[in-house]
């Protein structure tokens, strides 16, 4: 049992240990395997294929398991390390300590958006991008997207998702608008005036690698998703009578049958079901 801390409360020694363990996974190649996994399992919802990680109910359990895989690799390097979380409703500025030289480093420079500070700056020699869709071998960011400014999600916007008592709803994809915590938090469901919310908006705010399928190239990915994971806890606490949906495999004739994961169906690439991921009690807790 260990604790996942709010990143703003980490000591400089803890930040150093976390980033050192991440750099070690990069050195061994384990990190880039994780990046490939995320990209491989991003299946958009027009495709008649199984969607496990995005635009589907298993968005939360799939990413919970994915973060645990990363965290176990980290802990094999340094047993004292866990994944910190980033509350983007509170630490919502490009000058937050999260983006300082001693932690994740800052935004990219103008032009090629290359991150120039912190342990993941290409010039430090320890962070070569090998799984990407551009020619950039360096990490890119564009915090706040100054050319077309975007703000991080507000507490009210987050609450709008947490207040929904229904976990997810038909058609169980990015167009599910009738309600549903999952699509509101993943961020495809939004009022017409805004279009994007919560999780999706955070990817856009960071910019650079974080807007694409190889988003985990940016270690900020893990801190973002640890907070998303914590939010699933908050939703469960707020709605004790609600649970993961769909509870049973969809009926014959349902267009989404075979494309989304029900409560007791395994989530590739693991032989684990959403039910296995409903609680992390005994594994870790959030501060």
């Amino acid at each position: 049992m260990y604790t996942r801390q709010n990143q703003k409360n980490l000591t400089s020694a803890q930040k150093k240990r976390f980033t050192a363990a991440v750099l070690e996974l990069k050195r061994t190649g384990a990190y880039d395997d994780l990046v490939r996994t995320h990209d491989k399992y991003f299946v958009p919802d027009r495709d008649s294929k199984l969607r496990v990680g995005h635009m589907s109910p298993s968005f939360f359990p799939w990413h919970r398991r994915y973060l645990l895989q990363f965290e176990r690799l980290l802990q094999a390097v340094d047993p004292g390390v866990s994944v910190p979380y980033w509350d983007w409703t509170a630490d919502n500025s490009p000058v937050s300590s999260l983006w300082a030289e001693d932690f994740l480093g800052g935004t990219g420079r103008e032009g090629d958006r290359r991150v120039m500070t912190g342990p993941f700056a290409h010039e430090k020699g320890n962070w070569e991008i090998t799984v990407g869709i551009t020619e950039a071998r360096f990490l890119t960011r564009n915090l706040g997207r100054p050319q077309n400014p975007i703000a991080l999600p507000t507490a009210a916007e987050l609450q709008w998702a947490l207040d929904d008592p229904t976990y997810d709803t038909s058609p169980w994809d990015s167009t599910a608008q009738g309600g549903g915590f999952r699509n509101k938090l993943e961020g495809w469901a939004a009022p017409r005036s805004e279009r994007w919310r919560n999780h999706n908006k955070v990817h856009q705010w960071i910019g650079g690698h974080m807007t694409g399928g190889t988003a985990p190239n940016d270690p900020a990915f893990w801190l973002h998703h640890a907070f998303v994971d914590l939010l699933w806890d908050r939703w469960q606490l707020r709605h004790p009578g609600s649970g993961y949906l769909p509870a049973a495999p969809l009926a014959l004739g349902d267009l989404q049958r075979g494309r989304v994961i029900a409560l007791d169906e395994p989530m590739p690439p693991w032989d684990l079901t959403p039910r296995d991921m409903l609680s992390h009690q005994g594994l870790y807790r959030y501060e």
């Binding site: 027009r46 869709i133 994809d173 167009t175 807007t211 694409g212």
Partner: peptide, 20 residues
Amino acid sequence: LHVMRRADGSYLSGINHFQS
């Protein structure tokens, strides 16, 4: 540019996975 479709018909790309 790798192009993908959302269920509502809008477009995603290898660069923009979280916006269509």
